[in-house]
């Protein structure tokens, strides 16, 4: 019985994983990946170390504080090509005539995005190591922060994939993704414009608000559900758009 379940899960995941591998192969054979990773590390490294010694505290707070904002720029740049390029070169036609469901395709591309984001975050472990050398950091918020960062990255990647499905132009795809991610990052920063009744709602929509909980070391199911829902909405929206335009 259990082997049957494993078998069926395997066959469900087989196609998304094949797509994921293919996308990762494309990521790491083009220079874009290395450029994006370098920019990300330079920017976050600058913000992290420029204030690191001021507070005399061993923590990654500054790094995580800016992460939703930095991700809003970096992740749409990572995902902008996922559908736009396929549409532009015409390979989309081949993809759509292989025996794959749209859900498989979108999930596979999202997984590739998430793996890429993890590989982008890996070098920042160096910050953690340098912290451990100079002080004794509280590791709870660090682990929480990384866990949250992966969820945040996944959510933004799904938004980036959605905007990539809207157009065959990568620049337009990047800008739409950037705007959507910035809205999710900043929606609770403009609360003073909103009536007080909408406050809680705006706060619930904010990716930054949910991510902050992780960086305090709190892993709350509500926050996890928030990010997973954003990913699900991104996938469903993308499938809808692609289906609509057939």
């Amino acid at each position: 019985m259990s082997s049957q379940i494993i078998e069926s899960v395997n066959s469900k995941l087989k196609n998304p994983l094949t797509i994921m591998k293919k996308e990762l192969m494309s990521y790491y054979t083009t220079p874009i990946a290395y450029i994006v990773i370098s920019v990300f590390l330079v920017v976050t490294g600058w913000f992290f170390f420029s204030t690191f010694f001021l507070f005399n505290q061993a923590e990654l707070r500054e790094f995580f504080k800016l992460l939703p904002f930095v991700f809003s720029f970096v992740i749409p740049a990572v995902t902008m090509r996922l559908f736009s390029e396929e549409k532009n070169t015409g390979s989309f036609e081949i993809l759509m005539t292989l025996p794959l469901s749209l859900g498989d395709v979108v999930t596979g591309k999202l997984l590739a995005g998430i793996v890429f984001i993890i590989s982008m975050l890996l070098p920042t472990i160096a910050y953690v190591i340098s912290m451990i050398i100079v002080g004794s950091p509280d590791l709870g918020p660090v682990f929480g922060g990384y866990f949250g960062a992966i969820l945040l990255g996944g959510a933004y990647a799904s938004i980036g994939i959605f905007s990539s499905s809207l157009t065959r132009n990568q620049i337009i795809s990047f800008i739409i993704g950037l705007v959507l991610c910035l809205i999710l990052t900043l929606v609770d920063k403009f609360l003073f414009f909103l009536p007080s009744s909408a406050l809680g709602f705006a706060q619930y929509l904010s990716a930054d608000y949910h991510f902050k909980n992780f960086t305090r070391g709190i892993i709350d199911s509500r926050d996890i559900i928030y990010f997973l829902s954003v990913m699900a909405i991104g996938i469903i929206g993308t499938v809808q758009i692609l289906e609509e335009r057939r």
Partner: peptide, 28 residues
Amino acid sequence: NEVRSIIGYLPESAPIYGDMIVYDYLNY
């Protein structure tokens, strides 16, 4: 999907992923 799996299709001007080597592509 059942229809797609019994059809082999060559689109006009064969728009194949440029950044893959031929073997990887066929393997995929």
